[in-house]
Design a protein around this nucleic acid. Structure first.
Lengths: 129, 129
DNA sequence: GTAAAGTCTATACTTAGTATAGAGTCAACA
DNA sequence: TGTTGACTCTATACTAAGTATAGACTTTAC
């Protein structure tokens, strides 16, 4: 199949597919006589794998590592487990940060009302501190 | 004061201060004979204001709007309130996304143990789906 | 034969800075 | 007076994960 079809089947844009190839996530595929990229079912599987990983917010570098591991069926998978675990720690940490930010924002929001002038604005006064 | 001193007093790096100037957050300041930037207390106040805004994760564009509003003391401050409110909505939304991601990651993590081989890895199998 | 749709490469753009090179300025010390 | 070191200057490249575009080429349909 050509890149347009792969794009539709995978849900990745054409540019993204070419971008993943350049990033060495998808290996360079065969080309037609007219230099069009020709993909097979294996490319689609890999692309879906990549998409799953991206939906977990894994970076390109991390995905490259996972793909590499995936190509070595007899090695230990502990690096995969570690990666997911560390990622979960990071996400948890980020949530805590955002919760704190949300609290600050809500305190800030309650410092003012809509009908004031700029020079009386409670929000701006808090921002000056 | 010169940029090094402003950097220390504000906690922003020298490059960041120059970057903010280029982004029109800090207006172009006076220069010494040798072309060094010379700042006063007002620059420091503005820079601290910007830093507060950044700690709330406001974008450069949003901060530019706030600074603009701040320069018009007699106008209504409702745009400031709206901005903070919308930002809070966005943060809340982002937290929900991350909570969902965390759940997915934890389900994924429990699909495997450290002592398996890649071909038996529960995590990788989930990523193939 | 031609028009439309699809594809190609290369490049620029996004955010909020950070890092660097190479040059110029300034203060203190010998 | 010379020079060393600290400071500053501008301009440029880099980060992440794509997205958007220009200009050229290929393929398909009529």
């Amino acid at each position: 199949m050509k890149i347009g079809e792969l794009s539709k089947k995978s849900g990745c844009s054409i540019q993204t597919i070419r971008f993943y190839e350049k990033q060495d996530l998808l290996e360079a595929c065969n080309r037609s006589e007219g230099n069009y990229r020709i993909y097979d079912a294996s490319s689609l599987r890999t692309l879906r794998f990549i998409k799953q990983c991206r939906s977990l917010d894994l970076t390109i570098i991390e995905i490259r590592q996972l793909l590499d591991t995936r190509n070595n069926p007899d090695k230990s998978c502990s690096s995969v487990n570690n990666l997911i675990h560390q990622h979960m720690v990071d996400v948890t940490h980020r949530i805590a940060e955002l919760e704190e930010l949300k609290l600050t924002l809500s305190e800030m929001a309650s410092a003012c009302t809509d009908d004031r002038k700029v020079k009386e604005c409670g929000v701006l006064q808090l921002l000056e501190e």
